[in-house]
Design a protein around this nucleic acid. Sequence first.
DNA 1: TAGGCGTGGGG
DNA 2: TCCCCAAGCCT
Length: 349
Amino acid sequence: MKHGDVATALLDWYDGHARELPWRVSPADRAAGIEPDPYRVWMSEIMLQQTTVAAVKAYFLRFTTLWPTVVDLADAEDERVMGEWAGLGYYARARNLLKCARVIRDEFNGIFPRTRAQLQALPGVGPYTSAAIASIAFDRPETVVDGNVERVVSRLFRVETPLPTAKGALTELAETLTPQSRPGDYAQAMMDLGATICTPKSPACGTCPLTVDCAARRAGDQSRFPLKTPKKPKPTRHGHAYVGRTAAGEWVLEKRPEKGLLGGMMGWPGTEWQEAHPPEPPFPGNWQDLGEVRHTFTHFHLILTVHAASHVTNPPKTSVLKGNNAFQPSDLPTVMRKAFDLARSSLET
DNA sequence: TAGGCGTGGGG
DNA sequence: TCCCCAAGCCT
């Protein structure tokens, strides 16, 4: 295989098939000299970590409208940003987003650094994201390796080693393909190819610009790749949540600890999520058992029994009481919003 | 280094 | 219904 031909074929394909995305400068615009805004590239890459394009679009537009520059974001209040992130998942990303914005403001004069090493030193920016920003925003010849690239390269070279062991080898193979010309467009082309043609199941090899280069396609077993080591089964945990209001109509919430699951987000008081489930209400009230909510996290299934009370007394001092005006269900992580949705009919006035 | 860390959509 | 997974990072 002539590696230079792969990059050329992929870039030619990208010029005619690039997806239009809110954070993207099209290949035509880039050829005309328009450069991407590093802030928007960074924002999109953080949001896209382990998250689908469809889910990210609305959040990206909302964030960049509310905070058009990195300094605007750095000046925002933590709770406001966490509330806007609610529903997108992986909340450590939002905490690191704010940390990073403040580093850029305070240590870099509001200007994103351009080298991969400097970028990777920023909070929430790892090997993939640093390469993505360096290549896409600054057109530096860095090699991005995400799930798409792993799949494309493992098929091109028919790599028999399973992931995650194969990560290093796949990275080296990917580096041999990265061109010196148009590396930013090339990185985005690889990910578009993986997202639209070289998909996990039934890839569209008939319309792929790299078919003649693809070893797996030649062998006819492209759907076997990438190989993956089997995953461990997810345990099921149980818990109880208590959606209560005071006589004055205030919702009794709590702010979760900064670290760990749903860190820094608002939620309902309740038990630990474990095997044991002795349902002792955290404070007095006319509690009613409303049934179950089911939710699956990355590493466990949760069955949450939801209780509601319209008149609670003596909520703990650590509670956060919010009147109807201040309480926004959209600020809650999804599992907490599910509990609210189950309780709302019996609690709204 | 392997496990923790969300969510919603598709097959 | 269930499993897979989607532009990973941190510890």
